[in-house]
Design a protein around this nucleic acid. Sequence first.
DNA 1: GCCTTATTTGTAATCATTACAAATTGGATT
DNA 2: AATCCAATTTGTAATGATTACAAATAAGGC
Lengths: 150, 150
Amino acid sequence: MITNKAVLKDRLLAKGIKPTYQRTAILGFLLDNRTHPTIKSLHNSLVKTIPTLSKTTLYSTLELFAAKGLVAPLTIDRSEVRYDGLASSHHHFLCERCGRIIDVDVSCANSRRGEIGGHRIKEVHGYFKGICKDCLKQTYKTNKRRIFHG
Amino acid sequence: MITNKAVLKDRLLAKGIKPTYQRTAILGFLLDNRTHPTIKSLHNSLVKTIPTLSKTTLYSTLELFAAKGLVAPLTIDRSEVRYDGLASSHHHFLCERCGRIIDVDVSCANSRRGEIGGHRIKEVHGYFKGICKDCLKQTYKTNKRRIFHG
DNA sequence: GCCTTATTTGTAATCATTACAAATTGGATT
DNA sequence: AATCCAATTTGTAATGATTACAAATAAGGC
């Protein structure tokens, strides 16, 4: 784990969350790995260090984190929710070639104004779909990454 | 049905889709009702005129329509996909009070440019969450609509 | 009307998510 | 450091949207 344990503990306590072993590990993973993982891939990764970790714990912990604004659930995939360890508002880019979800900064005039068409904005969710910078470079090279269809 | 049958037929034929009874009714409903319905609510509405209509037909038809660019699937709800009869790029506003999903026009500088951070943009998906114009007006009145939690 | 093919339908799987109760853990108190 | 209570974690069993698939039906050309 790259992120310091004390930092994780403080982050959890600051939100009024008891910093248990599992919670610290889950938050740590999300901060260290900006891959926007699904529950399944989170579980695959974390059972290596916590063999008893159950998927139910992941579901309930991430629900708790999301409610407290520690993580953001992403509904970009139609089939499964992904989780973002960076909860502050930003957008995402889904590469249809390599399947990666990449963070992008977006300054949206509407969200800055706080309203659109008379409706009061509380949250902004957005993502782009296309071909990422890396894949564009590799257009004429063999792409060894998993091809993503979606 | 408000939208003319001949118009629906032409729209389907223009996309190379055989205009069957079911397909015409489904497209007609989506063009007449801009409510972004789920499969379930589509089925509830359409069985009134087509009693034999199966959910499987709805799933396969909407998949076909989406592939041909006739409708847009929305993944705003975490639990079920919604369908938008207007496929041209626009954004949505989810009201957390009444649960409605409202179309909004958004001119996004990034999508106009066609790229962001070096990534080539093919699609733009976005929605806002907050309180819609109508609900803002009714703040001190009784709201008879279903309260939406999510 | 008949035939061939595409479409529609119903039923049965699949799979992420949720519900729930039992087991375990954490922390306070003594 | 043993004990107790409440919160957390875990495993198993439901739920429910979506998909798979094969049989029934409809559409269009002859």
